[in-house]
Design a protein around this nucleic acid. Structure first.
Lengths: 333, 333
DNA sequence: GGTTTTTATGATAACGATAAAAGATGTTGC
DNA sequence: GCAACATCTTTTATCGTTATCATAAAAACC
């Protein structure tokens, strides 16, 4: 390993001078600069960032704790984080925690020891003590999405209450009055609760008495697939199912298909999130588009602003959603 | 920030003693140990890994350079890398390069400066000079998958020639003789070339004269979608299309569907890779299962072995594939 | 032309930890 | 009782940088 010392020796100057050339921090005479750069070029010298970090007290490291990278929307967010983070010269240390609290705690501690300058938590169900630990140990942090009990933390999200209400309104507009909602974890997070509330509120506003909330075991494809048996039982009573996320919806639609029912002819199904997959299934899925890439991008940008001392960095942001009409809803009127 | 110095002062011992307690590296008397641990507990002291790295010359950092994280199979591999890497106490620094050579070079340089102990490249089309740069600057590296011109580098892959031949054999067994192959980048990488060769070889073995290779613009959904127009033109002449990857296949199937053609009734389509999506579409896709999670896991495990000095670490591994029969092929005999 | 100011460079002390050598204390053996 | 040894602890050097301070040389001033 070649160090700054070697470069100094080989160019016949002191290490301070080499450091100056590298960082452009103080004036250096043209001849000396040229010589030093030549030696650097020749030797392929690269400054050791570990040593640099130690003395500058900057790591340019952002830790991302994420439950499951195999979720397509999470991958999309991470992509946004990585890409924008890198634009600002920050590196992304990825930590997969797979819904395990102990793993999350370990990652937090690790990121701390590694001198990470900020932490992004992606997921829904963070325990209070995890959040306390983050607040206590980390200078800067951001969350996606906000959690039910902690409104003091900084987050980027979208207004799921409004989005959900708009989707419900659309279904009503298409002539549906018997609309069920398929929730993932029920009312355990603000985000999910908002969706249910938006749905119920819009029904109320339209003087529709009927409402029904299914609660799936989880939020993945299989959980939606499993719920189809319930939905099939109720086929006479409902004409549409509003699913809390696209994966649930696709699982549901597929199981209905496998049992011989057609969407949207036999029943309409809509999703939420606009995961990449929702354009790749047939029928294409009518859904709410959450801009996951942008969420990641804005999250990391805000975090970097905070790291760099911007006191005015707005840190509770709701990004706009959009409504994506596709082919999974039947018009009844 | 509380340092080892503070802990030493507060426990009334030298910093070396504190270091020993932390690392269990040399004997420390029970009373002293207890006292030090108390102080650590009280103060919430966490050793600074940056400083530690500098002196131990270990970073426990593995860099992953990946073209596009929004590919579901890549996300799955990264998951395997992250999870197994962490098992062995290594951290994963994620670098997205989006098919940009300059970005790849920058990442390489960055990982070097950060003292990464190993690098994993995930993708297909790495330039020779990138690979040269990796070989020159990095002690240890692994690739997925192997590249056409560089057989000196270490990789984990699957035997795509055999896999492709097996799939072709299956189609022939189902009575197909007019089988087309939809390639992604043509013959630009060993991996892709092997597939084409496996397909052609099996046709030859069965004395089938007909062969036809479409070359798509890229390897994503849209590229498959676009190719449907070509396929439709040939509908009288071919009965099956073997796609180089699942995303291409799904795009193709969907466009066929959108134009009123049914798979597998009007034409059979098979894929390659067993991406998560292939179970979530209807019809479900018959395909070759590449164990992406395992590929990631084995890749990182092998890399760690090399880092830790295991001279015998086998570094050109082909993992077993498996054949997944689903519902996208029509039996003709 | 001597003093002051500017500009370029070098020497040295950090940063927060580990590791090797040296020192202090206590224990054992004969 | 003193040498020899084991056990624990401190001292000191080091990792590869940057930052501060000091110094030498050159430029500017009147």
């Amino acid at each position: 390993m070649i160090t700054i010392k070697d470069v100094a020796r080989m160019s016949g100057v002191s290490i301070s001078t080499v450091s100056r050339v590298i960082n452009d921090s103080k004036p250096v005479s043209p001849e000396v600069r040229k010589k030093v750069l030549e030696v650097i070029e020749e030797t392929g010298y690269r400054p050791n960032e570990v040593a640099r970090s130690l003395v500058t007290r900057r790591s340019y490291l952002i830790g991302v704790i994420v439950n499951d990278l195999s979720n397509s929307y999470i991958a999309e967010m991470v992509k946004g984080i990585e890409e924008v983070g890198r634009m600002y010269n920050y590196d992304i240390l990825l930590c997969g925690s797979y819904y395990d609290r102990e793993a999350q705690m370990n990652h937090l501690s690790l990121l701390n020891r590694k001198q990470a300058e900020g932490i992004i938590l992606i997921g829904y169900h963070f325990d209070d003590d995890l959040i306390e630990a983050v607040k206590k140990n980390t200078k800067h942090s951001m969350y996606f999405t906000r959690d039910i009990k902690n409104d003091t933390i900084d987050y980027i999200s979208i207004n799921s209450f409004l989005a959900s209400a708009e989707m419900t309104k659309y279904l009503i507009g298409e002539g549906h009055t018997k609309i069920a909602f398929l929730s993932d974890f029920g009312e355990s997070s603000t985000h999910e609760l908002d969706k249910i509330n938006g749905y119920k509120e819009m029904l109320k506003e339209n003087n529709i008495d009927f409402s029904k909330v299914y609660v799936a075991e989880g939020r993945r494809y299989n959980d939606g697939y499993a719920m189809a048996t319930e939905v099939i039982k109720d086929l006479g009573n409902i004409t549409a199912v509003f699913c809390a996320n696209d994966e649930l919806a696709i699982g549901l639609i597929n199981h209905l298909f496998d049992e011989g029912y057609k969407v949207p002819d036999d029943i309409s199904v809509v999703g939420y999130g606009d995961y990449k997959e929702s354009q790749h299934v047939r029928p294409t899925l009518t859904t709410i588009s959450e801009p996951f890439y942008d969420v990641g991008a804005v999250t990391v940008r805000t975090l970097i602003k905070k790291i760099e001392g911007d006191k005015n960095a707005v840190s509770k942001i709701e990004l706009p959603y959009s409504f994506m009409e596709r082919n999974s809803v039947k018009t009844l009127n």
